[in-house]
Amino acid sequence: MKNNHLLVFMILAAVLVLSTACGNSSDASNDAEDAQSENQHSTQKASDDQSKTNAVKNAVNDNDTDTNTNDTNSNESNNKPDEEKGTSANNTKGKKQAYLKQLNETENEMKKQQNNLEDNSTYALKAVAGNRSDAWDDHLNDIYDTLEKQLSTEQMDQLRQEQREWISNRNEQAKEASLKYEGGTQEQLEYVTVQANITKDRCFELVEDYMK
């Protein structure tokens, strides 16, 4: 009977030991799983942080690249205008010189007409004076149209006002000069001649002072 009690006691002790061992094993397993999960979480967090860091670095590098590209483009742009500016300046100078050449050619042509008159009749003189007046008026209108494209709005408004005053003064001077021959055959001739001379001077003035 004692032997049976001893056997039962030993069995219970063995069961208790096994149960304790299993519990410890389960706890160890859980602890291991927790540790593994924590390690995985830390690794993932580190990976995410690294990704963010790399993204920031890439963004900075991209900005640096864009900045360098913009600087390069800016340098190229700064270099091009210098070349284009020189070309533009040459074109502008060439255009101004071309107008002056035309005006000088017209002046020489008008002088030839005056010097090569077939007669000194009032009719012949009026014809030459009329041709001179028409020629200089055509040049004046052409120059004025060109200046409208070159000058700023403010500059053009100022020039329009000056031109109105100039026309009024030109007509007054021509009228005053013609009154010396009031009632005579040369009154109209003097009026047209003075108008032509003043218009010629205005053409040269506009090209020299205003044309770019």
Rank of each mutant, 00 (worst) to 15 (best):
E154C: 04
R170S: 12
K95A: 12
L100M: 13
E176M: 04
E107S: 01
E84Y: 14
N108S: 08
G130S: 14
E38H: 07
T69V: 07
A177I: 00
H139Y: 06
K175Y: 00
E208T: 15
K101V: 10
T65W: 11
L103A: 12
E190D: 00
L12H: 07
A55S: 08
V17C: 08
N169L: 05
A135C: 03
D66A: 14
D66Y: 09
R132K: 13
L16S: 15
Q158N: 08
L159D: 08
K2H: 01
A196M: 00
S47R: 05
E172S: 06
E105R: 05
Q44C: 02
D138E: 14
Y144E: 11
Y191H: 13
N58Q: 11
L179G: 03
N197V: 07
K93N: 06
D138W: 07
N4W: 11
T153I: 09
T53A: 12
S42Y: 14
K95T: 09
H5E: 15
T72H: 15
K52T: 06
N90E: 11
M211E: 07
D62C: 05
K85G: 02
Y181L: 09
Q186I: 01
S74Y: 08
Y181V: 00
E154Q: 12
Q50C: 07
L18K: 02
M156L: 07
H41A: 11
S133N: 13
N70M: 15
D64K: 13
E84C: 02
Q150I: 13
T92Q: 12
F204Q: 05
T122R: 09
Y181Q: 12
G86S: 03
Q155S: 10
A89K: 11
A55W: 06
V56D: 08
L125G: 12
E107I: 00
D31T: 04
E148G: 06
S29T: 03
P81Y: 13
L125V: 01
D27A: 11
R132C: 02
A32S: 09
Q155Y: 07
N131L: 05
K200N: 04
W166T: 14
S47C: 00
Y210C: 03
Q155M: 03
M110I: 10
N78S: 05
S26G: 02
L12Q: 12
R160F: 04
D62T: 13
Y181N: 15
E38C: 00
E76C: 01
D34V: 01
S152K: 08
S133R: 10
Y210K: 15
D201N: 14
A124F: 05
P81Q: 13
E109Y: 08
L147S: 04
A135G: 10
D145H: 06
